[in-house]
Design a protein around this nucleic acid. Structure first.
Lengths: 199, 199
DNA sequence: ATATTAACAGAATTCATATTTTGTCATTTG
DNA sequence: CAAATGACAAAATATGAATTCTGTTAATAT
């Protein structure tokens, strides 16, 4: 039995790649440098990843996974009111994107590249986000918080499309940036649209 | 008195520029070709425009003006219900962008370039759009169609931000494109949020 | 006088070539 | 025999000389 407390080589390759990406940016990153920072020959990298692109995608995918965790937690917390969860979910997503842009601009740029060029990966990620929002919507409708005639899938899609200004990387990077006030404005309007109208 | 039924030279330069842009794309367009297509030397162009960039911006600006006309008409038509006008306005804007992308991809690309690089111009255009939507909002609130506590300026900004997926050039160009169904989903949700709740 | 041109300098772009990088694989190492 | 290497061909990218383009201006035409 192999001791597994050491992180696996694929993982360490991704760590190394992330480091190189952060330092030099996506353009100047090459497989030889990644290998060098691990003290191995670059040929060996290809025993674990089929291509440089695959490495970069895996780095991005890992970030998306990290991003998802707190969003999943919020979506799963069925005890809180749906409106509250939806707000928390939205704030969490928005904050994560903004933080990434501020702290890891090079990696954020890669994120943008992927959104523009790796449709399959983006589609998967969007489907995952959609699933989470749909769950909140379904809970809200079931609890009578949201309008009963809403379809949870449609409502989730409308929500994600309506708030795209605050999480699509191109728009998050845009200057001048959207403000917290803008986010509230849009969220409140959409939330009002979801809410049940009491007689 | 000069006969003015002839279009002015600046106008004809812009027409020529538009033609060259459409044929060769923004990259391959140069001032010499624009002048050649008018049968004059390129030096003469600089008596009417200070730079190539100014010509390109003017071409884009002219398209934005054309785009604005029907939107202004809809916003000004205060007899129709606000909800109806807002829908018409949204459909008109969305249709115009999609038509441009389909019919004049080269010019649409320039539009995108401008949104990314000519902040002042974009800010002005957005302010104009905002003014129109604000007018519809104010009418709707005054007529009791929309919630009375809404601020027309905030509501207009929220509307534009919430529907950005359907008119921001980067997102309009995106693959896979948003569908009519998507547009309806978002519009209906936002409209529900604007509407007065009857007791 | 005013509109236009043609010649020009400096900036930007292209293009051919040199260099680097990717991805493979036969060989080596532990 | 599993893990890693290093030498290699093909693809991608950087470099710098040659060309094209922009923007100016003195000269020309109307």
């Amino acid at each position: 039995m192999t001791p597994v407390d050491e992180t696996s080589l694929p993982e360490r390759i991704l760590d190394a790649a992330e480091g190189v990406l952060r330092r030099y940016g996506a353009d100047k990153t090459n497989v030889v440098d990644i290998a060098k920072s691990l003290g191995m020959s670059h040929g060996n990298i290809y025993r674990h990843f089929p291509s440089k692109k695959a490495i970069l995608n895996a780095v991005a995918g890992r970030w998306l996974q990290v991003l998802m965790k707190p969003l999943e937690a919020i979506a799963a917390d069925s005890d809180r009111p749906a409106a509250e969860r939806l707000k928390a979910w939205f704030d969490c997503l928005r904050a994560a994107k903004r933080r990434k842009l501020r702290d890891d601009p090079e990696l954020f740029l890669m994120h943008q590249y992927i959104v523009e060029n790796e449709r399959e990966m983006v589609a998967q990620h969007l489907a995952a986000l959609h699933g989470l929002v749909q769950r909140i919507m379904a809970d809200g409708i079931a609890a009578g918080e949201f309008r009963p005639e809403l379809d949870p899938a449609d409502a989730a899609r409308a929500f994600l499309l309506g708030t795209v200004a605050f999480h699509h990387p191109v728009l998050v990077m845009q200057n001048p940036p959207t403000t917290d006030h803008d986010a509230e404005l849009v969220f409140d309007l959409v939330l009002a649209g979801l809410r049940a109208q009491f007689a």
